[in-house]
């Protein structure tokens, strides 16, 4: 028997009990998205590839932004692969309540299943894009480009975990707030894009370090900065890698995720009356 009140009544065990459902959502997302498309999952490759080429031309060739001495293609692709995963997690989980209002209004299951499934299904896409990145890396390495993969590579699972948790945490905070403030729906669309320019995706953190050292703290306040830089450092051997920065990212992520889960649980109990 259980009462149904209190902020901290998180029912996280329910989430585990419904793990089959979470996995089915992942599978549904993946299967249903590409029914009646010609290229199917190939889209996961086309999109980052084109973005990389575009970035290489615009920021590398025209804008002449430095790339820490790395081949621009690889530099941008490393940034895009990581950023895309975070951004997709954030974008898709932020619409949890609005998109699923119909189904949430009829049956109970832990609502967290939906954003968690989003994060997992994006992991598949990340895997595809990551493989693409590895392929390009091998190609450039064979051509003798100055890249030096090192032991920091082993941190990759941690990086992915941070990205997933951060995307999920921010996403569910926003999705909880969109119920009352639809403004956020508009904000999130271009907000994520703007945020990308605040993250060292198209420029190296070292540029800020040397040119605008007074703003370095601001760039590092963004938990994604350390993640992107560490990823790049591990696989390509250039960039800024600092355990303290990474620890900060992990802590900030945990706090955001905790707030997110708290808020999400509070909202899910009565959101049907507001939506």
């Amino acid at each position: 028997m259980r009462p149904m009140t209190g902020w901290f009544d998180l029912h996280l065990s329910d989430l585990w009990r419904y793990r089959d459902l979470t996995m089915l959502f992942v599978w549904r997302d993946f299967v249903a998205q590409y029914k009646q498309t010609i290229l199917g999952p190939l889209w996961h490759i086309i999109q980052p590839l084109f973005t990389t080429v575009l970035f290489t031309i615009i920021f590398g060739k025209l804008g002449k932004l430095p790339t820490d001495g790395l081949p621009p293609m690889l530099f941008y692709m490393a940034g895009i692969t990581t950023w895309n995963y975070f951004a997709e997690c954030l974008n898709r989980s932020s619409t949890t309540f609005i998109l699923n209002a119909g189904i949430f209004g009829k049956v109970y299951f832990p609502r967290l299943c939906v954003p968690v499934s989003v994060v997992i299904s994006n992991l598949i896409k990340f895997g595809i894009q990551f493989t693409l990145f590895l392929g390009f890396m091998a190609y450039f390495y064979a051509k003798g480009a100055p890249i030096h993969p090192n032991a920091v590579v082993l941190l990759t699972p941690v990086l992915v975990l941070i990205m997933a948790a951060l995307g999920l945490g921010l996403g569910i905070i926003i999705s909880s707030l969109t119920i009352r403030y639809r403004d956020l729906q508009v904000l999130i669309a271009f907000g994520v894009q703007l945020l990308m320019y605040c993250t060292p995706v198209i420029y190296p953190l070292s540029k800020i370090q040397t040119q605008y050292p007074q703003y370095l703290w601001l760039a590092l306040a963004n938990p994604m900065s350390a993640v992107v830089e560490t990823f790049r450092y591990g696989f390509l051997g250039a960039g800024t890698y600092d355990v303290m920065n990474l620890l900060y990212s992990a802590t900030a992520t945990l706090i955001i995720l905790f707030i997110g889960v708290l808020l999400f649980n509070h909202v899910e109990r009565t959101f049907m009356d507001t939506v």
Binding site: M1, R2, P3, M4, F104, K106, Y108, R269
Partner: peptide, 16 residues
């Protein structure tokens, strides 16, 4: 809706 946990009651307690 309250019994099936789709929404929570404003007051009172439900035990299931």
């Amino acid at each position: 809706k309250i019994l099936s946990r789709v929404t929570a009651p404003t007051k009172g307690e439900v035990r299931v």
